[in-house]
Design a protein around this nucleic acid. Structure first.
Lengths: 182, 182
DNA sequence: GCATTTTAATTAGCCGGCTAACTATTTTTG
DNA sequence: CAAAAATAGTTAGCCGGCTAATTAAAATGC
């Protein structure tokens, strides 16, 4: 849903025009918001293209990494879902496709008949080993021209945005929960 | 596709472990890359929730804005597709849903029988007018705690990342084009 | 002036997010 | 100990991105 690149972004003139009708509008903040989205999407598209060349999506890659690091290269779908931050329905579909590709294998749990064990196969491991150098390379390409100070500054600014997001989300969540309790 | 939130992010210990096998790995760059994605996704999810409350998605909102600013509030789907940076197939589906909601109306072009004219309706205008204050408010909430200097610095850093992305994309595009000419 | 190419818009299907509903199993409660 | 609630995983369908194929119309080339 976020793949479109929003080529025609509002210029300052258009924003000033709207400012007359909307006192909430702070043009610098709006331009920064749009710039943040635009830069992210272009960067993410470049990264997705590299993943795609390896038959991967980012979620598939992250799941392979979870399995790679797990004891016995094995994990439950419900745990993958929690760590990935996606629903079990989504993870179910992803694992189905990855099983078809031969990157993971499924087996029933001996202790809980509802559960499955997902294990990284040799095929899956090879896909990871082939992709990982490219993964780190693209990261170097996209961010490698930032100096150490600039990286520190970006970390700091991202944290401020994340803190703002979290405060807003929690405030909103509380309102939602209160409404539920009515 | 980018909505999952990637809750379990690799910590420094796990990265150092992998560094032994992958010389390309620069932990600061990888952590920054993942942090950028994570912050963006959380911020975008908060924004999407506000859109959703108004029956909107970001693409629908942007299309309404394009029509709002267009002469006679009218535009061709092919022009919308170019400005949005999405395919005509995607825009066709979006416009169909928006027509059903009564936000836009379609009429045949008098000059080109292949073309359609898309016009913003009074309904659509009202959806925009209701949403715009909330739109600017959420932007203020998410970015409003940055000082002017911090905003300038973020603009600058985003530009560096965008320049890196563009150099990489063009280099890759050239390679692709060369391959096509074989 | 006709054949070929390009363009405009649509539909089908894939992918990966979501919610809702389902079946089967385990856990909790009274 | 049985009923109720919660959990695990799956499927269906929606949404919005994509590509490919389709139909109809316009533009181009010879």
């Amino acid at each position: 849903m976020d793949k479109f690149t929003f080529i025609d972004r509002p210029d300052n003139q258009r924003l000033q025009l709207m400012k007359k009708s909307y006192t909430e509008l702070n043009s610098d903040i709006v331009r920064l918001f749009i710039d943040f989205q635009w830069t992210y999407r272009n960067m993410q598209k470049a990264y997705d293209d590299v993943l795609d060349k390896n038959g991967l999506s980012e979620s598939r890659f992250i799941i392979l990494m979870f399995l790679y690091h797990a004891p016995n290269q094995t994990m439950l779908p419900s745990v993958i879902s929690e760590k990935l931050g996606a629903t079990r329905a989504t993870v179910s579909k992803l694992l189905k496709a990855m099983e078809i590709k031969g990157w993971v294998s499924k087996s029933s749990s001996t202790t809980d008949k509802r559960s499955l064990s997902i294990q990284l196969t040799e095929n899956g491991n090879q896909v990871l080993e082939k992709f990982l150098p490219e993964n780190f390379n693209i990261a170097n390409v996209l961010f490698g021209s930032l100096t150490s100070e600039e990286m520190e500054q970006l970390f700091y600014l991202l944290k401020k945005i994340q803190d703002n997001t979290q405060k807003y989300t929690h405030k909103n969540g509380e309102i939602k929960d209160a409404n539920k309790k009515d």
